[in-house]
């Protein structure tokens, strides 16, 4: 089943930033409920930029708790601050998702054990200290390192979400086919295969017709094996596209009400 990771609880959005500043739980709760109803499977939770690491950790814990008070969904804890990650994991109910590690050895050695300890899923980006590779082949080589390291840390493959890194089509057009090919090949790395995810709206950064680009890419990526995406769960047409692609790919059993059923958990 395709897993929508709702992107809206993020300090980059003004209302969430204000909520964090005022310790006002209402906007966080509202977005949690709204995204859940719209069909989100995970709630991405991101504090936005906060200077102090300790303060960021505290805010992350508050966001996770607040979101989970409103709905029963698990959170995708989205931060590069390991302290904030751990505070988020500590207060999280159920299986969390760590967002994210890269193929840099130091990061993998910090985050995979954390995922293993908390029984959490983890997003793993196909990039390292050298940046984002262009070719599918190089992305897959990094994915393989992620797979081998995750396996060595005892993380079950279905808990590993490889993100081949989607770049904006208006400036990095040549990455498009490479990302799609990488999605295909990730499934051949291990058996059972790792899952895949991506930051969907990157594809349409600063381009016109953003919703159209997003949903076209989503359908194409799902054919190649995309299992989940950080995306706008409240874009109805986008979610309809995911539902329809998932039916066509025979991922769930068809019924006339499939658009509605897709949104129910």
């Amino acid at each position: 089943m395709f897993e929508i990771i709702g992107e809206r609880i993020n300090g980059l959005f003004l209302d969430i930033r204000e909520a964090i500043a005022n310790k006002d739980p209402k906007p966080v709760r509202d977005w949690a409920v709204k995204q859940a109803q719209a069909g989100a499977y995970w709630l991405d939770v991101n504090t936005g930029p906060i200077a102090s690491k300790e303060e960021q950790a505290e805010v992350m814990a508050w966001l996770v708790k607040t979101a989970q008070e409103a709905v029963e969904l698990p959170c995708c804890i989205d931060t590069t601050n390991v302290l904030a990650m751990e505070e988020g994991l500590k207060v999280h109910k159920g299986k969390a998702m760590i967002n994210s590690t890269t193929a840099e050895q130091a990061k993998m050695d910090a985050l995979f054990p954390l995922a293993a300890n908390y029984g959490a899923a983890i997003v793993a980006l196909t990039m390292n200290e050298k940046g984002v590779p262009k070719s599918a082949e190089d992305r897959i080589a990094l994915a393989m390192e992620l797979v081998a390291n995750a396996d060595a840390y005892g993380i079950p493959m279905p808990d590993l979400y490889i993100d081949p890194l989607v770049l904006p089509v208006n400036v990095a057009q040549e990455h498009g086919p490479e990302v799609l090919e990488a999605l295909r090949q990730v499934k051949l790395l291990a058996n059972p295969a790792p899952k895949t995810t991506c930051g969907l709206s990157n594809i349409s950064q600063k381009a016109p017709n953003r919703p159209l680009i997003n949903r076209t890419f989503l359908a194409m990526a799902m054919v190649c094996g995309l299992d989940s995406a950080v995306m706008d769960a409240c874009d109805d047409e986008l979610v309809d596209t995911a539902a329809t692609a998932s039916i066509i790919l025979n991922q769930s059993i068809y019924c006339d009400s499939y658009l509605k059923i897709f949104r129910q958990k």
Partner: peptide, 10 residues
């Protein structure tokens, strides 16, 4: 059925 990279690596 081919082998996966992980299976070979092991």
């Amino acid at each position: 059925m081919g082998l996966t990279g992980l299976e070979i690596f092991k």
